[in-house]
Design a binder for these strands. Sequence first.
DNA 1: TGAAATGTTGGGGCG
DNA 2: ACGCCCCAACATTTC
Length: 471
Amino acid sequence: MVVTTGIVWFRQDLRLSDNAALLHACNECNVVIPLFIDDPMDQSISSIGGASRVWLHRSLESLSADLVAKKSKLIFREGNPLEVLNELISETGATNLYWNRCYEPKVIKRDEEIKSTLSQQLAIKSFTGNLLLEPWEVLKQDDTPYRVFTPYWKALVQKLVLTAPYETPTDFKPLAKWPNSLELSQLNLLPQQPIPRWDEAMMAHWKVGEDAAHDVLHEFLEDGVQNYKERRDFPAIGGTSLLSPHLHFGEISPLQVFHYSNMHKAQNPHHDHGVGHILRQVVWREFAYALLYHFPQTVTDPLFEKYKGFEWRNNDDELKRWQQGNTGFPIIDAGMRELWQTGYMHNRVRMIVASFLTKNLLIHWHKGEEWFRDTLVDADIANNTMGWQWVAGSGADAAPYYRIFNPVLQSNKFDGKGEYIRRWVPELSKLDNKSIHQPTAEQAKECNYPEAMVDLKATRERALDRYSQIK
DNA sequence: TGAAATGTTGGGGCG
DNA sequence: ACGCCCCAACATTTC
């Protein structure tokens, strides 16, 4: 009998259920080797920063335990993926290699090289695992990609054939003798020094892994989805799904989110209003990936060329005040401090802080994108790129340049009682609900809180002036 | 998935 | 009762 040995290369699909690559390997091979590779030269699988690496560590820990429970084992290796794969193939005589596709431009390039190099030696099979549909499957009539969300959404919904997610394999085809593996801790995903370990305080806010991802979804469907559309704009209440980091690492798939959401809708036909809106948000993620695939240059360059020569001010001191949450605008500082402490920021507040950075401070969106990429546990090149270009006005379906958020008005509107501000900027707790959105210089001093760093009206006009020049 | 300026309307106070 | 003014509330337009 011919022995087939399959390697399943886990990347952004850290789950056992609805995992096409894993299931195919388990069905087709006599033995299956689950593998994770950390490439320190590349900052791992997705150019991620410190907060995401901590999440990745926990997620791998969880996946590894889940595999052990199935009598399998996750092999950890470190280095250039092509070299690592080559080594493992010659050690094990692997005949098949399986993965679910990733879409970051440099990862596509890397995977293509691996495919063309190794396909001499073994069969390589790649699958759709992290998206509902491949980016090249959703195109306009003229075969060019969408740049506007609503028509994209309609086209996707029409095209999507909802199949049930793949089952978890029943037999993981373990080896009698496993190849060598590093310890997870040897991948150095956790911050090394200094003490105290900031990651522990941050991760106290989260549960990680495939089971946790499903718990989050089901809890959201039970309790949160009803008034999602109304509630999701208010940062003080937990109105958002909190699925983003789980989706980023593939602890749960977008197809699973669709499947279980629709199932919930079918079982609760009278309170189904939120489901469509959460699915719409999942498709925004899909749209971001499609944009990244079709316009890979947008990771660094504006989608619309006329923004290319835009003159940013890029003041480093001002950037630092924004990063540290010391702008003197309570809603902004609350958001930036929530981010620093939890690795997350409410979506409404992300828009407010981003508008402030790019429009009021005229600091390049790259600087904000870099900071988000380093500090968010859900940092994701596709979402991050689309979001920042959207705010800066240079991207797909973007906010017009004159759409400048006023942080004080937004704060009044979406955190009227100042609950969110009091949570993250406790030194302002004693101010009344009216003045907490915009303390006077005197109140700020009493609270030991910074004075507003800019004049909103003047900086708004400066931005309008500069933006209007590039029409 | 704005905000501010400008325009319009209508109720109520008042001479 | 009437006209006039004020201004809040809402609508429209401009940035």
